[in-house]
């Protein structure tokens, strides 16, 4: 998760101080990925060191306000103008690894492993759905509300894909069992 680029892009919309940046980030993402204020200031000082932002004095109430530089704006353009890299090989997926090993382990009840995960993922999906249908994500009016609602959709799709994959694994295993092939002899 690139906090650096996200904060830089928020700053490009107008000068802000640290707490404001954190609030705006969390408004758009519904505190799904909470930022601590220390992390915000560390990021800001790195951005400043790299010449992407400048600390532009005080807002009259003692807050140090940051704004983007020319180089910072170019960095934001480059971020929006390129895809998020998809690493090859992809990051390790613990569930895929766990199932791959479970299937080849004679003493593991793979059905149980699958069902237990399905229940846990379903519970997460229920929670995302509860957030989606209540509060400001349910009837988004401001762009920040819509942004959060779409972040929730991303989590919903991700959980759904995992459950669908678990169903698929279970069906494949069941078919293997009925056609006489066992996972172990």
């Amino acid at each position: 998760m690139s906090v650096k680029q996200a904060l830089l892009a928020l700053l490009e919309q107008g000068p802000k101080y640290g707490y404001q940046l954190r609030t705006e980030f969390e408004e758009r993402t519904g505190s799904t990925w909470p930022l601590n204020i220390g992390q915000v200031y560390t990021t800001l000082s790195r951005l400043e060191r790299d010449g992407l932002v400048v600390a532009g004095g005080d807002d009259g109430e003692g807050h140090v306000v940051y704004r983007t530089t020319e180089a910072g704006r170019a960095e934001v353009d480059a971020w929006f103008g390129s895809p998020v890299p998809r690493d090859q090989p992809p990051p390790r997926d613990e569930l895929a690894i766990k199932l791959a090993i479970a299937i080849s382990s004679p003493d593991v009840d793979v059905e149980y492993v699958i069902q237990q995960q399905r229940t846990a993922t379903m519970r997460a999906l229920q929670e995302h759905t509860r957030l989606k249908r209540s509060g400001r994500a349910a009837r988004p009016e401001a762009p920040e509300d819509l942004a959060w609602s779409l972040v929730l959709d991303a989590l919903v799709f991700e959980a759904e894909a995992e459950i669908r994959w678990l169903d698929h694994c279970e069906a494949r295993l069941a078919r293997l069992a009925t056609t006489g092939g066992g996972t172990h002899s």
């Binding site: 519970r123 229920q126 669908r164």
Partner: peptide, 25 residues
């Protein structure tokens, strides 16, 4: 559809005529 089941308060899983599990907040 898991996405639709997630609107429920509880999700009951059936397999071969048996309730195997329940997801409940």
């Amino acid at each position: 559809e898991a996405r639709h089941a997630a609107w429920a308060d509880r999700v009951v899983f059936l397999r071969d005529g048996v309730v195997v599990d329940e997801a409940d907040a």
